[in-house]
Design a protein around this nucleic acid. Sequence first.
DNA 1: CTATGGATTCGCT
DNA 2: GCGAATCCATAGA
Length: 187
Amino acid sequence: MGDHPLARALGGGVVEAARLLLGRRVRSEVGGLPTEVILTEVEAYGGADDPASHAFGGPGRRNAAMFGPAGTLYVYRSYGIHWCANVVTGPPGEGSAVLLRGGVPTAGTETMAARRGRTDHLADGPGKLAAALGIGGEHDGLDLLGEEGPVRLLPGPASPGEIRSTARVGISRAVERPWRFVLLVRD
DNA sequence: CTATGGATTCGCT
DNA sequence: GCGAATCCATAGA
């Protein structure tokens, strides 16, 4: 694959990729405004064999980006209102991806606050995270591993903390798979 | 063609 | 705790 530090991790299994994404940073420079978060909550979604995944049933117009190479950004609209960002994983054509559910702001906090209309709870939810980073439908299909894209995936602290796995949220199928991963904050 | 419901968030009670 | 807001892919006639 590519030479990006995370390329190898993302190209493997989606569950492994989800755990490795925790603690990594996502940086965006949408509209010339730099913002950055450290990922603290993610969910793994498999390919056509995962009933809860958008890839279930094969590729279509909406989920085309999911079947691209690992490191591709997949953006979809939720409930007609919010945008949610995913990182495509696995080999091309598999359709697996990791939903970015939450993060802690580390740069551009003022920009995020302006976009969100509040100064707290800036990125503690899928829609909030995408909104804070300025990610929208126009970013669907972007390469997160490139060096000059508006949205990039960067390495984070070597030892981010303890990871806890739970059931996924907001889905009605395959609820039993504990594919939601939360990074426990140490004090 | 029309109908349906979702990987959510926010505001009000 | 509960329901509204609001878009579009997908399913069914």
